[in-house]
């Protein structure tokens, strides 16, 4: 449904250092869905995500996130736009010089008029939602991998974003922690009514979370649909991807 498309990518082609990374990629993500961008290493998943976030340049009509291309945003609209997005980075990307509490408070201090006491309450609430209350005064370097991801997730949802982007959330996590993180993301998605766009190649994670998959291979979109459609489709790459992960 066209009105439901919260993210739209239209014939996106990207080069980095004259190397073609993405070629003619088109897909859309619907509001309220978990859309997983998958593919093997080097297929262009993270590059695509960085384009969606406006970190890499793109043609004005090639990308639309919440109706705008973030690369072409006027400076005075940046704060308002990015306050509607949350991003969970692969390694957390919490600012190491700040405590977890200060990391979470940062977007609130920069984008709102909320004062100190209320900011602390909002931060503690979000930490509670990811079961990390004890991390408020800790520095990122004092957290384990799983805790770091949860703290980063808390920062990503601090502004109650409309869209949550996750870049390889499972990287470096054991299967149990990964499963717990997936459940947490799904729980928060329902709680906050977010649209989730996740980049991953963790098949168990995809099976648990994806409403829709966007499969990239060598920078080209090879499949777009549900996981079941992918597995049952005649697309050998998609089938092989899931089969190999299952050990078939």
């Amino acid at each position: 449904m066209a009105g439901n498309e919260i993210i739209k990518v239209d014939r996106l082609t990207a080069r980095i250092d004259n190397q073609l990374i993405l070629s003619d990629v088109s897909f859309h993500a619907s509001a309220g869905d978990v859309t997983v961008i998958l593919g093997s290493s080097g297929s262009g998943k993270t590059t695509l995500l960085k384009h969606l976030l406006g970190l890499y340049p793109s043609d004005k009509n090639a990308i639309s996130v919440l109706g705008k291309n973030p690369w072409h945003l006027p400076q005075n609209e940046e704060k308002a736009f990015y306050s509607r997005l949350g991003v969970l980075y692969q390694n957390g990307a919490l600012l190491n010089s700040l405590t977890v509490g200060e990391n979470l408070a940062l977007p609130l201090q920069q984008h709102t008029d909320i004062k100190g006491g209320l900011i602390e309450k909002a931060v503690r609430l979000k930490l509670q939602m990811v079961n990390m209350q004890e991390a408020y005064n800790k520095y990122p370097s004092q957290l384990s991998g799983g805790m770091l991801k949860r703290a980063a997730l808390a920062r990503a949802i601090i502004m109650d974003p409309q869209v949550l982007f996750c870049d390889e959330p499972g990287a470096g996590l054991d299967p149990v922690s990964l499963s717990a993180l997936d459940e947490l993301i799904l729980h928060l998605q329902k709680l906050l009514g977010m649209t989730v766009v996740m980049v991953t190649h963790e098949v168990p994670s995809i099976m648990r979370t994806a409403d829709k998959i966007v499969f990239l291979r060598n920078g080209k979109l090879t499949f777009e649909g549900t996981v079941r459609e992918g597995i049952e489709s005649g697309n050998t790459y998609v089938r092989e991807f899931f089969d190999r992960a299952k050990g078939n």
């Binding site: 960085k50 976030l53 406006g54 970190l55 940046e78 704060k79 308002a80 736009f81 990015y82 306050s83 997005l85 991003v87 980075y89 692969q90 390694n91 990307a93 919490l94 600012l95 190491n96 940062l106 977007p107 920069q110 984008h111 982007f165």
Partner: peptide, 10 residues
């Protein structure tokens, strides 16, 4: 990716 994180926090 801390600089990316700052950018995507506006």
């Amino acid at each position: 990716s801390e600089t990316d994180a700052l950018r995507t926090m506006g």
